[in-house]
Amino acid sequence: MDLLKLINKELRAEILNKEIIITMLAFGLSIIVIISFTSNLSKQIIEAYAPGLFWLMMLFVTVLGVHRSYAYEKEFNAIDLILTTPIDRGLIFIAKSLSGFIFITLMQILIIFPYFIFLSIDINIDFFPLILSTLLINLALMFVSNLISGISMRARISEILFPVILFPLISPLIIAATNITNSIINQAPYIEWQVWIYLLISILIVFGLSGYALFDFILEE
């Protein structure tokens, strides 16, 4: 119940401010347009690099969105309104991760067709594993970035600290995401890319559980 209240607060913040989705969307679309007009590569090369490019774009979009989500907690020290209540603080982590998951998924729905069209990528794949793996990767992106954002929130140089800690820690996830998407698009047998699925699930479990368990201590001054 508390979780729903917190998610509701996150969604309400975005409906009123429209900052996270708009920032994510503007950045994503700009990247697609820039790449499509500046690269003069063959279709095969574009298709080979498309998944990596997509997840790299998602990484930067995540940084923007998650950073904004914590920035308004710091304005007016608004987070005190929640921290002074007797709720389980792990739920703040879960609520922020789930709302971020909703925002990034929405953004991907809006961006995916321009991505395929502008980069002239053929869509002839099995969508079910692609969608399922993308949703899991989105959730993992949010678990990792929310944990790091929570850790860096109290720091004086949080704007610098957040990406500096996040990028090395999230690299294995981006590598796994790229390989999974690439393998699905190329219809490679599952046995060849199952290791990346295991890595993805491990990241989900480790960062999801540690974020939930540690957020009480992380948010303590």
Partner: peptide, 27 residues
């Protein structure tokens, strides 16, 4: 124990009613 800090401690984009309702519901 209720702490009322020297900083506002409310969400800027929410109204007083919404801020209070959020705090009360979490308590």
């Amino acid at each position: 124990i209720f702490y009322l800090g020297d900083v506002p401690g409310f969400y800027k984009f929410l109204s007083p009613l919404q801020n209070i309702e959020l705090g009360l519901s979490l308590r």
